[in-house]
Amino acid sequence: MSTPLPTIRPHKGRGAASNPVGRFEKTQAVAEDDGWYQEEDLSRPKTETREELARSVISRNDSPDIGFDQALNPYRGCEHGCIYCYARPSHGYLNLSPGLDFETKLFAKTNLAETLRGELAKKNYTCKPINIGSNTDPYQPIEKTWRLTRAALALLNECHHPCTIVTKNALIERDLDILAPMAERNLVQVFVSINSLDNKLASKLEPRASAPHRRLQAVKALHDAGVPVGVLVAPIIPALNEKDVEGIIERAAANGANSIGYTCVRLPHELKQLFREWLDLHYPDRAAHIISLIQQMNGGKDYDSNFATRMRGQGIFADIIRKRVQVASRKAGLHRTWDTVLDTSQFAPPRIHSPQGELF
Score class of each variant (00 low, 15 high):
D224E: 13
S345Y: 09
F275G: 02
N199S: 13
V190R: 05
I8R: 13
D101G: 00
G261I: 05
R208F: 08
R23V: 02
N306Y: 12
V327R: 11
E79Q: 15
Q70C: 15
D280M: 10
I58L: 13
S196D: 11
A218R: 09
G77F: 05
G357I: 12
H223T: 09
R324H: 15
Q217W: 05
G35C: 08
L281G: 11
L100A: 01
N131D: 15
M311I: 04
A287L: 03
L179W: 11
L120M: 02
S259Q: 11
R14P: 02
S63G: 03
I142L: 09
D319S: 13
G333E: 05
R351S: 07
V245G: 03
D33M: 01
R76D: 02
T263V: 14
C159W: 12
G15A: 04
L53Q: 14
T337L: 12
G133M: 02
Y84I: 15
P235K: 11
S354T: 03
R324W: 13
L96N: 00
R251C: 07
K323A: 10
P235M: 10
P235S: 08
P141M: 06
A108D: 01
I260N: 11
L96A: 01
D302T: 00
L94Y: 07
G333W: 15
Q314R: 14
Y139N: 15
N195C: 11
G118N: 06
K323L: 11
C82D: 12
R60S: 15
E39V: 04
V327D: 08
T126K: 14
A254V: 05
L156H: 01
N111M: 07
G133T: 03
L232Q: 15
P74S: 10
V229R: 06
P228A: 04
G81A: 06
E277S: 09
T309G: 10
C78V: 02
L176Y: 05
P284D: 09
F24N: 09
D34P: 00
R276Y: 08
H269N: 08
P10L: 07
V166H: 01
S196A: 08
I352H: 00
G133L: 07
E114W: 00
I83L: 14
A253M: 03
R251N: 13
S345I: 10
V245S: 03
Q140A: 04
P268Y: 04
Q346F: 08
R9F: 08
Y37H: 14
V30E: 00
A154F: 00
F24H: 13
V245N: 02
G256V: 13
G77N: 08
V245W: 04
E114M: 00
R55T: 14
Q296D: 13
F68Y: 11
V57M: 05
Y93I: 02
T49Y: 02
I66M: 08
G313Y: 13
L205K: 10
H160Q: 14
K144R: 12
T49H: 02
L240N: 14
W278N: 05
N111V: 06
Q273M: 01
